[in-house]
Design a protein around this nucleic acid. Sequence first.
DNA 1: TTTATTTACGAAATCGTTTTCGGTAGAACA
DNA 2: TGTTCTACCGAAAACGATTTCGTAAATAAA
Lengths: 338, 338
Amino acid sequence: MRKTNIKELAQILNLSVATVSKALRDSHEISEQTKKKVLEAAKDFNYTPNPYASSLRRKKSKTIAVILPEVADNFFSLAINGIQSIAELKGYHVLIYLSHESFEIEKTVVEDCRSGRIDGLLISITSETQSAGHIMKLQSENIPIVFFDREFEEIVAPKVLTNDYESGYLSARLLIERGCKSLQFLSISSSLPICTKRAQGFLDAIAEAGMAKKEEEAIFYCTGTHAETHEQIRNLVANRKDIDGMVASVERLAIQVYLSCHELGVNIPHDLKVIAFSTVETAPILNPSLSTITQPAFEIGKTAADILFTLMDGKDYGYSKKPVILPSVLIERDSTKN
Amino acid sequence: MRKTNIKELAQILNLSVATVSKALRDSHEISEQTKKKVLEAAKDFNYTPNPYASSLRRKKSKTIAVILPEVADNFFSLAINGIQSIAELKGYHVLIYLSHESFEIEKTVVEDCRSGRIDGLLISITSETQSAGHIMKLQSENIPIVFFDREFEEIVAPKVLTNDYESGYLSARLLIERGCKSLQFLSISSSLPICTKRAQGFLDAIAEAGMAKKEEEAIFYCTGTHAETHEQIRNLVANRKDIDGMVASVERLAIQVYLSCHELGVNIPHDLKVIAFSTVETAPILNPSLSTITQPAFEIGKTAADILFTLMDGKDYGYSKKPVILPSVLIERDSTKN
DNA sequence: TTTATTTACGAAATCGTTTTCGGTAGAACA
DNA sequence: TGTTCTACCGAAAACGATTTCGTAAATAAA
């Protein structure tokens, strides 16, 4: 079945393209009668409007972009779900870009967003990102941007986050209450706010309990590839028998800790207690079940999208200039019990 | 910093828009000298080409769409990764649509794809999809389509699948060898080829072992919402003590089985052995570790994208009309051992 | 020198919409 | 009767690129 464009449709109907266009957009300038005729013909002759012609003329693309570090992480999967749920409602299209934690890729993608391809951007920055020039440039071209989860602190923009500091604090408190004497915080970045805040909460909690360590000792950085991370964590678990409690700042680190312990025969929670920032749904059926600080990932995505859309409507998004905080919940399971 | 369009750039350079356009596209009609001047000015004056104007004229969008049932499933996350890896290489943009297992949504999205918004489509159909009219309509408009994982059997199109029948067969064989006497196959659809083929392999294996059951008894369908599924599986585990082996056709069903067993105090593998089609990375650290048939999810996505791009280049994709099969691997862990 | 050929560029049409700005008829009003 | 509104519709100009085709100058071939 061949496609028609608006010009052909106009010819068939013996009307002008202007009239057809207006009829299709349900303009008051057009009589109900002709509207009906146009709609019918549009269906009969298989008319599908060309979105790019429309975007060109109206300077609106009905498209948003989501930039995130990876998708094979439950948190981001759930966040995408939340974002999509809103985009679908609004009839918007969603472009997904993966930065793979590479600042270079992030920069390239953000650069491309300046072309007018998108009406708005949702972004969770990479663990490498230390400057936000690329993002500010986009901002200066009046494209609404909302940060979710991984913000860039120095930039003023709507942000949807979770209570990272508090959660970091509580996770350490839990381990201390369960009798741990030497704690370690596993991080993936020394600049990412989610990591630094969680770490700071952790540090404050151990200091408060008289278990203070030097920051370099208390925090273990797992940068590098996933394979390298595995190696690092395995070595840590193998060699540092003094550590009896760990807080994993992101999901995959916790999994690495578990795998290492299984490989090395280290018993969780007896030899080592573990708690992780994670939304992994298998937490309750892990061996042992994993205590988690679970972020409201879906809601974070949904809220960020919500704000983005009100911004794109030209409205103020109603919240103050402060980030929106959706709290995480700590669920204790066997990995921290005695 | 203001954006420039090609017309302004031409004025600045005292050249025609035609020349500027050709210079930017590195045409042989333009001297190296002016090319250099144009490129410089483009950078200096912050020129970013409007992709929609370009798409309109060239009838190419540099965009592909991926339609999948859900993203919060490790298989699909990994597949997206594979797809993105190729798209990024080719400088293409990726639109993601979630059908949430709803045929209606799938139809709407596919319909929209006819508008010229995309140059190609990768799709994994919903569990409800029983007809492919919408997809054939798209095909008839010469938009390349590649199915991955969840195909529609009756349609002729490139497909990238895994060895479903064989894997179903092997999973049942394993349980039989481990001494199971009464097996159950957990399915999510009576029409989805991945389910029916896996189920058929399963049925053939138990028939061969003299453990044949009627199909209605051997296969348990978990349709409905996730919450309903949990209820159904819980009831099954609670009431059918005769069943001592289960094959979960998709990841989330296995998780539900585990959760139910934990709740009900059913011991895996002693009371019930479980094997699942799954790519979940926590399989080795579950309680007990989960035997899986693991699909090469990343490669499936990557290969599908590869084929799509060769198709979009107008070339034959080199393979025969038969689907490309990337085999899964069975990894036995504790959930099926004695 | 004359005639082809190449090289380098520009004018204008084109892609398929949307929107502005008129314009014509008939109704309503004085 | 003349005037002012409405209600509908159309011509044409955008939107910002690409591409075809034409042409002038420079070079090569005769």
